[in-house]
């Protein structure tokens, strides 16, 4: 049976097969009110958007809110989209801005912990996501839990911008130029952010590898 990761991977591969001309056609159709074209656009990007929001915000509810707000903004503003940049750059700009807002608000409210309240007490929200890789070997599971904790600590210690840049580069595989475009900064500024983030990560994870 295909795992969730495999399923999503397959979907991503299908999405990747959609070439740019197809995407332009979809955008134009959606601009003229074609709901199906808009839905196809959403499906081409929504897994990445949700994954990014969830991993940045560590909250299902917040990720859900960001997802909805991103695509509602796209829907509202698509008629004004003039192809000055790529659709993905435009979309990730919206995602990055919404996630940055959320992260900044949390910093102000000192709500940086990924812990959430449950009936069983306070728990890490990521514990609700099934972890399949380390479940067989108890030693590996223990190490995995420690690495997980350390990664979370480092991520929480990054500035919102460093965190987004790191997320986009390391996990989403975006080029620094595209990240700069999405964040409205130069490529060099994005590179500096990434540099600082990787230094912190190296320092934190060095003992485990």
């Amino acid at each position: 049976m295909a795992t969730q990761a495999e399923t999503l991977g397959t979907l991503a591969a299908v999405r990747g097969a959609t070439d740019r001309s197809d995407e332009i056609g979809l955008i134009r159709a959606a601009q003229h009110g074609d709901s199906e074209a808009f839905e196809q656009l959403v499906r081409a990007y929504d897994q990445n958007v949700l994954r990014m929001a969830f991993n940045l915000l560590h909250s299902r509810e917040d990720a859900r809110d960001v997802y909805q707000e991103v695509f509602l903004r796209v829907y509202r503003n698509l008629p004004k989209f003039r192809f000055d940049c790529s659709f993905s750059t435009w979309l990730y700009r919206i995602v990055a801005n919404l996630c940055l807002d959320q992260l900044r608000k949390r910093k102000v409210r000192k709500e940086t912990s990924p812990a959430i309240e449950t009936t069983a007490g306070e728990m890490d929200s990521l514990q609700f996501v099934p972890e399949r890789r380390a479940e067989v070997d108890p030693q590996r599971r223990l190490l995995s839990a420690e690495v997980n904790t350390r990664v979370n600590e480092v991520l929480e210690g990054l500035t919102p911008r460093e965190r987004i840049v790191f997320e986009m580069r390391h996990f989403q595989g975006m080029r620094l130029r595209a990240i700069g475009d999405a964040l409205g900064v130069t490529e060099e500024a994005a590179k500096n952010c990434l540099f600082r983030a990787t230094q912190k990560m190296r320092a934190a994870l060095g003992d485990f590898v």
């Binding site: 969730q4 990761a5 399923t7 999503l8 959403v42 499906r43 929504d46 897994q47 949700l50 994954r51 969830f54 991993n55 299902r60 990720a63 859900r64 997802y67 909805q68 990521l126 996501v129 099934p130 972890e131 890789r133 995995s144 690495v147 997980n148 990664v151 390391h170 996990f171 990560m201 190296r202 994870l205 060095g206 485990f208 590898v209």
Partner: peptide, 23 residues
């Protein structure tokens, strides 16, 4: 550490994705 970080990465679960699409 790059590899280790990747292995800690979680996928978004399909239920959440479906809920979002429905919303």
């Amino acid at each position: 550490w790059h590899t280790s970080l990747n292995s800690e990465r979680r996928d978004v679960d399909v239920d959440l994705l479906m809920e979002c699409r429905q919303d």
